[in-house]
């Protein structure tokens, strides 16, 4: 039973990693760029929800606060693309990596100035409620995280596979010039996917904040999430979730069965092993060109 309990909380953690990784993958899938500020987007989303919802701040109803935070983060994502990333159109991938790393540094600094460096917690209606099945305790927050993540991954997967705009996004990443020829407004598509990633980051932020405290350095979770995205295979949405779950499960299990200090290393060790065995991740998206 103890193990089961551990697994469930690990799953919930893994879902949060998976959600951040989902943001990485979204942007990569549609623009071929990697947004290392994704973790900081999540941190901003969490702080915005906290500002909207907490009774000592604006005190809006929780659900309204969530919707507002997602909307604001979508706008932030859109603006980041329109103001910064768009100028880098056609530049090498590493240039955008460096740009987003510095953007993350600036965002963490701004969050520190606005909200301070003390850990804060979100007053969430989910906290503290639980269902007991025998000796197994299912927290409402854990269950919500798992359900929301599954629905979101499914929704985004269908969005990319079935809708016209989703296909346009994939086309825009595969070959920008050819996408232009086909009448796809590549730049607008890029801005849209950044907005989408901002919204997903906000959802991840809300779910993360529902489980624990947040402070500006929470943004560094993005590093672990990037490992999750790579384990799953960068560019694959189910892969991002899979990678997140693997990391989320391995952490508590290794600290319980191996040694406490090892749990920090395990996610990255798994990442390296996966990369050595399968250089493009578990659900590899890399295909050989048919000539």
């Amino acid at each position: 039973m103890d193990l089961l309990q551990l697994l469930i909380s690990g799953l919930a953690n893994g879902c949060v990693y998976g959600l951040i990784a989902l943001g990485f993958v979204l942007i990569y899938k549609a623009t071929e760029a990697v947004n290392f500020a994704q973790g900081d987007f999540m941190m901003l989303g969490a702080f915005l929800t906290l500002t909207f919802a907490n009774s000592n701040e604006l005190g809006l109803p929780f659900w309204l606060a969530c919707i507002l935070a997602v909307a604001v983060m979508a706008v932030v994502g859109y603006l980041v693309e329109a103001l910064l990333i768009r100028r880098m159109f056609g530049e090498s991938q590493i240039a955008i990596v460096i740009l987003t790393i510095s953007l993350g540094i600036v965002l963490r600094f701004l969050a520190g100035v606005i909200w301070g460096h003390e850990p804060q917690s979100l007053q969430s209606p989910l906290a503290g409620k639980e269902v007991r099945i025998g000796s197994l305790v299912l927290g409402f927050d854990d269950m919500t995280i798992i359900i929301v993540t599954l629905l979101l991954t499914l929704g985004l997967y269908l969005f990319f596979a079935r809708t016209k705009i989703g296909l346009a996004m994939q086309a825009a990443s595969q070959n920008q010039l050819a996408a232009y020829y086909m009448g796809i407004p590549v730049k607008r598509v890029h801005a849209l996917v950044w907005a989408l990633a901002g919204g997903v980051a906000a959802i991840a932020g809300i779910l993360f904040a529902a489980k624990g405290t947040i402070d500006p350095s929470t943004g560094l979770l993005g590093i672990k999430a990037s490992a999750a995205a790579i384990i799953g295979g960068f560019g694959s949405l189910p892969g991002a979730l899979l990678g997140g779950l693997i990391i989320g499960l391995v952490e508590p299990l290794s600290s319980r069965y191996v040694a406490a200090g090892v749990s920090q290393i395990m996610p990255y060790l798994i990442l390296l092993i996966v990369l050595i065995v399968r250089p493009h991740g578990l659900l590899s998206q890399v295909r050989a060109k048919k000539v």
Binding site: E32, G90, E91, Q93, S173, Q174, N175, Q176, L177, Y180, G235, Q285, V286, R287, A288, K289
Partner: peptide, 12 residues
Amino acid sequence: RQKSYLKTERIR
């Protein structure tokens, strides 16, 4: 800078 358009690195 010469104008360039990215292609995916996932198909090689």
